[in-house]
Amino acid sequence: MAKVFTGKDGRLLLDGIEQVKVTNWSLTGNLEMLETTSLGDNQRTYTPGVQEFSGSATLLYYNDGAGRNDASTVLRKVLRVDGITEGDTVNMRLRLLEGATNHDVRLTTYITSVSFGASVGDVSSAQVDFQGTGALLEVTV
């Protein structure tokens, strides 16, 4: 059956917990290409180098009835009084839902940048950038 995916099908999970009030997420995968062109070649040639994954997400700064605030949890990955250690990774799962089928990309990340604020006439939200480390853990897209 034909299926067009929209934001309605999107989900974001951090450490296995589905985040609420996410307005967008994006993921970028890069492959570094190493040039292998040599003298006598008529066309440039390349060989694959190192892969890199990074992305961003925006969460409304929102307290649900039980006091849960996912934006706050993510913000505190970077806004903290103690330093960041090697073990402060976040298991991130970016999902598009198709009925009972999940189209996922799962990777280990560091939260590299967070920003939030308040402005007149707008809802407060947290913008989060993340950097993948290591290979992707799961790909079902």
């Binding site: 974001l12 609420v20 996410v22 307005t23 839902l97 007149v120 006439g121 809802v123």
Partner: peptide, 18 residues
């Protein structure tokens, strides 16, 4: 109004503003 629609919402949600 401010659009506070989030991922997985079926309908647009608006919040009263100024």
């Amino acid at each position: 109004t401010v659009d506070i629609t989030t991922l997985s919402d079926e309908y647009r949600q608006q919040y009263s503003s100024l």
